[in-house]
């Protein structure tokens, strides 16, 4: 059994749900993200947030998978501050939905001043509504600087507890500062721009597995919604036992996510079992 705590199922086919169920997936959590194009109006986000909170839980349930969502304006669409404020005004209503765990994936993309301001405003929302927070860290050359700006902004916010914030997409040059500051860290198994399974196991061996999870971040790009169970196989090949695999692929995400009373990974009866055969 495993949980994929960061996967963009709106971009995946129903066959992917079926394959994930066969591989042992019992729950996913899906952060709001960039669709590959900029929405032309805030109303476009209402439709997207409804997809995350209404359509996807039903699609996942067909395969016995629990689906939860995180709501936000992603940093790639945060450069227009006025537009961002209009979208952010929509968020409180969706935070009331029964499968929404919190604010995410917020963060930075190119480390701009406006992105940072919008990130700080999201942190205030999370503090106000006392939600969990899922943070995206930037890609490639921007990750090191962006991670430090993000950690500073959360510290400056003052009231968010590090144990209720997960900083995602860590790599070898950012994992230490995230864990040392008391945050949770996510390693994303994603080709070219993030972490391979081999490197993720290196990071576990070097830094331990406390407050650490892995995810696929499967989306519309080159990505693999089975990356989490495949990393479990890599762990076994590297000499780690089933308990260690279970900890990183199931128990750690369960521990973090269960801080929200809305999270559940209890068995769910598939409503479309014929589709799995």
């Amino acid at each position: 059994m495993f949980i994929d705590p960061h996967v963009h199922m709106v971009s995946r086919t129903t066959d992917d749900y079926a394959r994930m169920a066969v591989a042992g997936c019992i729950a996913v959590t899906e952060p709001a993200f960039w669709a590959g194009y900029d929405r032309s109006s805030p109303q476009g986000f209402v439709d997207y947030f409804r997809q995350l909170t209404e359509s996807e839980p039903l699609r996942a349930a067909a395969y016995g998978i629990r689906h939860h969502a995180w709501i936000c304006l992603n940093p790639k669409e945060a450069e227009d501050h006025a537009f961002a404020k209009d979208v952010m005004a929509l968020i409180p209503d969706f935070l009331k939905c029964p499968t929404v765990l919190g604010i995410g994936e917020i963060g930075l993309n190119r480390n701009s001043r406006t992105e940072l301001a919008v990130f700080e405003e999201h942190l205030e929302l999370a503090a106000k509504f006392d939600t969990l927070v899922l943070v995206h860290t930037p890609h490639l050359e921007d990750k090191h600087k962006g991670t430090k700006l993000i950690l500073d902004a959360i510290r400056n916010q003052g009231s968010l507890k590090p144990g209720r914030v997960l900083i995602d997409h860590v790599e070898e040059h950012t994992v230490r500062c995230v864990l040392d500051a008391g945050f949770w860290a996510g390693m994303t198994l994603y080709p070219d721009t993030k972490c391979t399974a081999e490197r993720a196991v290196d990071i576990m061996e070097t830094h331990g597995t406390e407050r650490l999870w892995i995810n696929s971040a499967g989306d519309w790009g080159h990505s693999d919604p089975l990356a989490v169970p495949k990393a479990g196989v890599t762990m076994r090949a590297r000499g780690h036992g089933p308990d260690a695999v279970r900890r990183i692929t199931l128990e750690n995400p369960r521990t973090f996510l269960s801080q929200s009373p809305r999270f559940s990974d209890q068995p769910l009866r598939p409503t479309a079992p014929d589709a799995i055969r």
Partner: peptide
């Protein structure tokens, strides 16, 4: 932080 995002990628 930079003044403006220089593209998305």
């Amino acid at each position: 932080p930079v003044a403006h995002a220089d593209g998305k990628a």
